[in-house]
Amino acid sequence: MVQEAKALDIVELVEQAVAKHGARRDAVIPILNEINQAFGYIPTAALPEIRRRIHAPAEGVFLADSHLYSAASFYQLFSLKPLGRHVIRFCESAPCHVMGGRQVIQALQNELGLEIGETSQDGKWSLLTTSCLGVCGVGPVFLVDDDIYGNVTSDQVPEILARYK
């Protein structure tokens, strides 16, 4: 099962993130980032918590939940729904593709039985794509959580996946 964030944790985390980055409109992205990092996604319940701490009409800062949702949904590294325990981000950019990425993503899909953007029933895997990770010298490339795999071929896929519990 996919784990959802708990209300108390959310408040505490927002508190910390706002303290760290400042209760400012231009701190919104770093704050969202902290939350996304901590929970693996941004729970909607976090948005009013952030809004409450930054909204300051006296200083001309007017923030609504819609502003935050709008920003949170824009960026690819943010997720608005819980993801699996392990998140695979496959680079689907042209350089990796030309160097054999097409076969690798097919192998990943077959191995996991997931379409791109899906999370497995047991909550173990999410299969996402990403734009260029900037390690094209060793393409095709994918990330499993924070681990980068480069020069991958399709027959290495099962072996790599097997490393994750």
Binding site: F62, A64, S66, H67, S70, S73, F74
Partner: peptide, 11 residues
């Protein structure tokens, strides 16, 4: 209206 109900989401 200064209400900020509608917004753009995703991209």
């Amino acid at each position: 209206q200064c209400r900020f109900v509608w917004t753009q989401a995703y991209r």
